[in-house]
Design a protein around this nucleic acid. Structure first.
Length: 562
RNA sequence: CCGCCCGUAGCACAACCGGAUAGUGCAACGGCCUUCUAAGCCGUAGGUUGCAGGUUCGAAUCCUGCCGGGCGGGCCA
């Protein structure tokens, strides 16, 4: 609809240029927007105000000229010049309801597009190290990252989702020592407890499982415990697998899966880390100082240089990160999106600097990042700290258990990633039945109920048969609802393009409200009004389809009954 | 001291990337079920968009400076 009007305006413009009223403006596409207020029409453009200066005409006069130059069409009932020079378009009835036919025809694919053209994009998210259960922050990353995958896929990209984790390193050694200490009967309160040990109760469970010689299977590995509490390597291998399985269960409960799990250790084993360092040295981007090897990241926009290899000979964390991203590039991902917590934002400059130093032709802004701000968890009015070591943090599993999967996903994905987020446990509990997600799901279930009713009423009362009676839809509530449906493809396209899943959530809330209003104002199934009832059924079904499509993008279920 | 993010109604958040009278949910108040799901609808109340300037037809949005909050600025990850 927007596109149709934009094209009409472009024709009007070229007419005006021909007449010499307006200078040529290459690259200018008229901006058509949905209005906020129905009294401003269905759609509006600010074109006259944008062009007024260049045309040397008052905006309202120019608006009049633009309208006069519009080609004949069947879409617009009337136009209006308003305020400082807006042109408001009032669509005719047929233009409003035509979308119903489109939605029913396209079904689950309504709103999808092919802008990605099948190109490869990799989305890395969660990437928690296997040292504890997933916390709320990981949950936010999972909700946003998974939704991004769905959005990109819906807009024609070939999406590869990936989870990267460190299965060796110092943190993992601490983990193994902690489990060993538990197995030896120590508790975090004892003096002999490892200095940087993990204190959570899951460590005790892990120690018990290890000593019981349990077998655990995670998404990417399976192992049986040896049970020898003096074999630190064995404890470490088992612990990693055990925690990977815990995280898998959390993600599964959250409805999130990955195409690939990538191990940091593999970058060392394959020699990729060493090759990366060698390439950076050859490129002349490194120097030695104080016994350490430094990378001149300041040549690439960092405010100071960074250590790559410590005095002791170990690499710092961002070196394997650079090697990892080179690997992504070599796998052919022209586009890579990393979704991670904002506390890691300083790695962006370093990783990009390292990649530039490799001179592999990697674009400067590659990879892209979506950073989500921290989640603050309130309980009893007090902040619960998200400390992995403390073991007292709120886990993703806790949230799912308390408020349910759908509400948790919606809550975490329905807000802009760049905003800090307060997750008030008590509020979430108290409002679990009044969460916005239920409002949307309820609209879906209601429509399903109406359809059941209609089918029982008369054999031929199906939404599809309503397509012949769309001219019966004339009430403001019906037309407003139909107009909202036309916005959906644009919402999906914008959300995918801007990497903002929360736009879909906001739209769905708006759509559900429009439906609830329509439902309450008009009887859907009325035996004395067959044509009208059928038309309303068609509109309801189109609404249901869009709600289902939108909820799917957020990974939220669309129940048929509630 | 420097960098990134943020500041919108009592609370949690939106605002189609510069548009018209700043919205939604919760909380508060008043109505609506003998009829399709009341997890709903209709209405009332609630705001100097942190503060002060600037840019322009037009600013919550862009620029500058303050104030306040979060996260970074480790040879930690």
């Amino acid at each position: 609809m927007k596109e149709a009007l934009t094209s009409l305006l472009e024709q009007s413009l070229s007419n005006l240029v021909t007449q010499g009223l307006v200078p040529e403006c290459p690259g200018l596409t008229p901006q058509v927007d949905h209005t906020r207020d129905a009294s401003h029409g269905d759609l509006a453009t600010n074109l006259a105000m944008v062009l007024a200066k260049r045309a040397g005409m008052p905006p309202r006069d120019l608006a009049k000229a633009i309208i006069t130059a519009l080609p004949d069409n069947t879409l617009i009932a009337r136009t209006e010049i308003a305020g400082p020079g807006f042109i408001n378009f009032f669509l005719n009835q047929a233009s409003h309801v035509d979308v119903i036919r489109q939605v029913l025809g396209a079904g689950p694919t309504f709103g999808t597009s092919a802008v990605g053209a099948g190109r490869k994009v990799q989305v890395e998210f969660v990437s928690a190290n296997p040292t504890g259960p997933l916390h709320v922050g990981h949950g936010r990353g999972a909700a946003i990252g998974d939704s991004l995958c769905r959005l990109l896929s819906a807009t024609g990209w070939t999406v590869h989702s990936e989870f990267y984790y460190n299965d060796a390193g110092q943190q993992i050694t601490n983990l193994a020592r902690s489990v060993q200490a538990r197995a030896l009967g120590l508790t975090p309160e004892d003096d002999d407890w490892p200095a940087d040990g993990y204190r959570g109760t899951y460590i005790a469970d892990l120690a018990t499982a290890y000593q019981a010689r349990s077998t655990v299977s995670a998404a990417d590995r399976s192992i049986t415990a040896l049970g020898d509490i003096h074999d630190l390597d064995a404890i470490q291998d088992f612990s990693v697998a055990w925690l990977r399985r815990e995280q898998d269960l959390d993600l599964k409960a959250f409805g999130v899966t990955f195409d690939e799990y990538f191990l940091e250790s593999s970058l060392y084993e394959s020699g990729a880390v060493n090759r990366t360092v060698a390439a950076l040295e050859q490129g002349g981007h490194t120097y030695e100082q104080g016994g350490a090897l430094w990378l001149r990241t300041s040549d690439f926009g960092d405010d100071k240089d960074r250590v790559m290899r410590k005095k002791e000979g170990d690499y710092t964390y961002f070196v394997p990160d650079v090697a990892y991203h080179l690997n992504k590039w070599q796998r052919g991902f022209e586009r890579v999106i990393n979704e991670q917590g904002a506390d890691h934002h300083s790695t962006i400059t370093r990783v990009r600097a390292g990649l530039q130093g490799l001179a592999e032709g990697i674009p400067q802004g590659w990879p892209e990042y979506v950073l989500h701000q921290m989640v603050t968890v309130l309980r009893d009015g007090e902040e619960v700290k998200l400390s992995k070591r403390a073991g007292s943090y709120v886990t993703l599993r806790d949230l799912i258990d308390w408020v349910g999967r759908d509400a948790t996903r919606f809550f975490l994905a329905a807000r802009s990633a760049s905003s800090q987020l307060t997750f008030d446990i008590d509020l979430a509990l108290a409002q679990s039945n009044e969460n916005p997600v239920f409002y949307i799901q309820y609209a879906h279930a209601r429509i399903c109920s109406v359809k059941r009713k209609a089918v029982h009423h008369e054999a031929n009362w199906t939404p599809e048969s309503g397509l012949e009676h769309l001219d019966r839809l004339v009430e403001p509530e019906a037309l407003a609802l139909a107009l909202l449906l036309t916005k959906y493809p644009g919402v999906v396209a914008a959300a995918a393009q801007q990497l903002e899943p929360h736009a879909v959530a906001n739209y769905l809330r708006e759509l559900a409200a429009a439906f609830h209003g329509f439902y309450n104002a008009h009887k859907m199934v009325d035996e004395s009004e067959e044509g009208l009832s059928l038309a309303r059924l068609a509109l309801a079904e189109a609404t249901r389809q869009v709600i289902a499509n939108g909820l799917a993008l957020l990974g939220v279920s669309a129940p048929e009954t509630m």
